[in-house]
Amino acid sequence: MHFTRTVRVLFGTLTWLVLAFLYVPLIIVAVLSFNSVASLAWPPKGFTLHWWRLAAHSSGARDALMVSLKTAVGATAIALVLGLLAALAIHRFRFFGRESLNLMIVLPIALPGIVTGIALNAAFRQVGFAFGYLTLIIAHATFCIVVLYNNMLARFRRLSPNLEEASADLGAHTFQTFRYVTFPLLRTALLAGGLLAFGLSFDEIVVTTFAAGAGLETLPIWIFRNLSRGDQQPIVTVVATVVMVMSIIPVWIAQRLTSDDGPLTGGTR
């Protein structure tokens, strides 16, 4: 397709501006974590690793990191199993209520996080669950499943049913076909979905606030609580940088694994 030079240059420039708009704030946080002055003051005065050392020895931040990791691993594990099964069911079978089921699975991403959070909180109270790891992991799993589901469905749509039919024709029973044919084809999508779910769970804050109860503190909650405390500010920038890197790296890998499935969607707050 042909565009005039003016159109190309104009749209190119706008694109670069928007990309800068997207990335500059991320870079600023990382830069501030090495700032030798203990505040959010700009421009940075000098380079120091002091805050990184302090953050590494901050027991509050370390405990929160462990909570975040455990939660993310638990929620991702649940989401891997249930997300795969849900996508398999929706893709493979035609059953009553299929369309509404499909709509309901994406519901958690269409409603604001605070609604999901307070709804889960109310539900846990009704059922009488004590707030803790269990409630936190269940809450995170609800939105992690959506990510897995979307990724798996995108992969299923790309897979040819011929392969499974061929396997069956050659005498494999259902389980063998799944084990030796379908699963290997799904592996990268599963891995990518798992990484995305992990990244998402790792930096989630809204649902966490409502589902964790008083005793548990994930890294984002720790950041949020310490933001207003001036003396903690530099350590917060360090932890923020860590959280950012921890959520971007898995996503970057996931993106490479599934670049043929179309853009990754189904994020949620």
């Binding site: 990309l19 997207l22 990335y23 991320l26 946080v29 995305l196 990244g199 998402l200 790792f202 930096d203 804050i205 984002p220 950041i223 949020f224 923020a240 940088t241 959280v243 950012m244 959520s247 971007i248 996503v251 970057w252 993106q255 853009p263 990754l264 994020g267 707050r269």
Partner: peptide, 11 residues
């Protein structure tokens, strides 16, 4: 475009 989408919202 997509990578910042997944970077921590709080950060």
């Amino acid at each position: 475009v997509l990578v910042p989408l997944w970077a921590s919202y709080l950060v």
